[in-house]
Amino acid sequence: MTLQQILFIVISLVVLGSAFLVVTTRNLFHAALFLVVSFFGVAGFYVLLDAGFFAAAQVLVYIGAISILFIFAVMLTRDVITAQRGNSQWQAAAFVGAFLFLLMAILLGPFSITIRGHQFGNANWPFDMAGDAIKAAPSNFVGTMGSGLVSMDQYGVPFLLAGVLLLVAMVGAIWVARELRGREAEKAAAETAIDDADMDMNQPVQETLPLVDTNEAHESHDAAAVEKH
């Protein structure tokens, strides 16, 4: 058991544990904090994968920006946050999630499975995974990546687009979340009013719709006729 393996196990526990807590905890602030922990864990993974740059980027971007964002949002909406954990479909979601994980585990696991002539499991992957080829760690991948990102032959355009995307996102976010005043506020309030009566999922859908009236009439007529006999 090498050091990296132990590290890996510890980090994966951290990541998965905190992720699990994110999705289950009632207190939303705690969820945001657990999220931060999870991000740290992921950064640790990046280090293990010899992608130090990304680890740093992860910490900066995710933990430094996004998590702060989450905390702001939590703070701003604190008065309507309820203590509920799961919504009405959490069982189906849990089941599907578990199923999907199992599926993926089988496909990606170290087994070799043959279903109907097709082979699954990474033991069958054409490139040797469960084993051998240790590829050299890249030396200056950051520089290569950087030059790739600015070069028009490679990823220059997506890079520019990414920039545009960020700009647009920023502008959009500012505009969407602006404070509405006066008539705008009233109109928005009226349009998005929640009709609580609609919300009740347990209320049965109306049985008789106008279209089936004649049918109903026939049915009751038939029923009456049959009963006469």
């Binding site: 919504n87 479909q89 189906a92 979601a93 599907v96 199923f99 999907l100 599926l103 496909l107 699954f120």
Partner: peptide
């Protein structure tokens, strides 16, 4: 969330279909 779940289920089914 409901729509998401439906889409997910559909995707899983399709995936299984194509796998198997």
């Amino acid at each position: 969330q409901g729509y998401l779940l439906q889409a997910l289920i559909a995707a899983v089914v399709l995936m299984l279909f194509f796998l198997v």
